[in-house]
Nucleic acid binder design. Structure first.
Lengths: 110, 110
DNA sequence: AAATATTATCGTAATATTGCGATATTAAAT
DNA sequence: ATTTAATATCGCAATATTACGATAATATTT
């Protein structure tokens, strides 16, 4: 197997999980932090900054682009990647909806 | 390979990624939602509720226990799983620190 | 103690992810 | 047009994850 059974879950559950999953790798967290701090970046900066091969960085960037959290604009022979601020805030909002569900503490565990 | 190079990232990056990763599966999102709504649960309820085998549910519960977001108390022959509200709020807080970094929108992307 | 019920663990197959070298693609510079 | 630079894609090997049947472990019930 190794195949997630997406069809048995709700759209919301699949959606949340897919967002969490993309953020669930330290390289992608590092890339986001770097882009945020530098305002923008090109892939080669990241290759120098992180210790990963260019092909690997490019692959991680692609996954971040897939969920729309970053966008790339071609600038001459390089690409300028930026956070999509609207989506950034939207993802945070979706996470907060999940976390703000009221947790009722049950007697059996306290 | 297939081996994440954790040693090249900061503790914060690894920590955040590991939390996101655990939440990055729809079954685990579903389990958390179910426990929150039912106040508590035992594994067998989840087997009926979700369409996954008992062994699979047990494995997902273990991962959730590993990050401390749920805890299990033995109750006779079953186990009562509850959200650890303190950790639940702490994880949310850690995520918000990440998301609340100020994003400077760069001219090249707008 | 034997039977039953619930959960955990083991072993294994299928699929996914990570990482990287090699190579393509694209655009600027010469 | 050729060279150079930056990024993307392909193909592959190593490792991780997902899922589940079988079985073990634990605790209650009979």
């Amino acid at each position: 197997m190794g195949l997630t059974k997406s069809e048995i879950f709700t759209d919301e559950q699949n959606r949340l999980a897919s967002l969490f999953k993309v953020l669930g790798h330290p390289a992608r967290v590092a890339i986001l932090q770097y882009i945020i701090n530098q305002k923008a970046c090109i892939c080669n900066d990241l290759v120098d900054e992180l210790g990963l091969a260019q092909a690997t960085i490019s692959q991680h960037l692609k996954e971040l682009k897939n969920i729309g959290v970053i966008q790339g604009t071609i600038e001459g022979k390089s690409v300028c990647y930026c956070i999509d601020d609207k989506l950034w805030k939207q993802i945070q909002a979706e996470f907060n909806v999940f976390f703000n569900q009221e947790v009722k503490v049950n007697s059996c565990c306290s």
